[in-house]
């Protein structure tokens, strides 16, 4: 079920979070994210009752999907109106999320094409993408961490707390 292609993108399915508001999902094999068949389509999940603003939930989930390769450069995101309709939220909320993603270099907006996932800049890290050096290895280790944590019965929030703690303490 798991495997990484030469580009360092693992296109396996992620198990949905057992609880918690804002967990992106990539269902099926690979995530071209395009077409209307639903196969392999990445999925957004928002919790309107969460303390995290909805636009931030959308932004962070899209960035996470790009980081794990579920969304590839050139993949087109739904129009803000369409995504807002699907989630039954205000259009402005989706537009803000897209603006933040564009400011972070994750997406670009083009006329007549819409919002597409941006290609990572050469040699530079951007929000939502692993550093070029050892990217595949880091991604693989991250997945190992997630598997081990879930096998140990930790919730996704607990895993995120661990990672935040490691970031704060410099990983030492």
């Amino acid at each position: 079920m798991t495997g990484a292609d030469g580009a360092g993108r693992d296109r396996t399915a992620r198990r949905p979070a057992p609880s918690g508001p804002a967990e992106p999902r990539a269902s099926g094999q690979g995530a071209s994210g395009q077409g209307s068949s639903g196969q392999g389509a990445a999925e957004l999940r928002v919790d309107l009752s969460s303390a995290v603003p909805v636009y931030e939930q959308i932004r962070s989930q899209v960035a996470a999907l790009v980081a794990v390769g579920a969304l590839a450069p050139g993949d087109r995101l739904p129009a803000s109106r369409d995504l807002a309709r699907d989630l039954a939220i205000a259009v402005g909320t989706v537009q803000r999320a897209y603006r933040e993603l564009e400011a972070g270099g994750v997406v670009v907006s083009r006329r007549r094409v819409g919002t597409v996932i941006a290609a990572p800049p050469r040699g530079a890290a951007r929000e939502g993408s692993p550093a070029p050096a050892g990217g595949a290895d880091l991604l693989g280790r991250t997945r190992e961490l997630v598997r081990a944590a879930r096998a140990a019965g930790l919730s996704d929030e607990a895993v995120l707390d661990m990672v935040r703690g490691a970031l704060r303490t410099g990983g030492g």
Partner: peptide, 20 residues
């Protein structure tokens, strides 16, 4: 039925008349 409830999901797929 329209989406309701606190938790809502949507695929990140661009649906068009032509593709459908």
């Amino acid at each position: 039925p329209r989406p309701s409830g606190a938790v809502r999901t949507a695929p990140l797929v661009r649906r068009t008349v032509w593709s459908l």
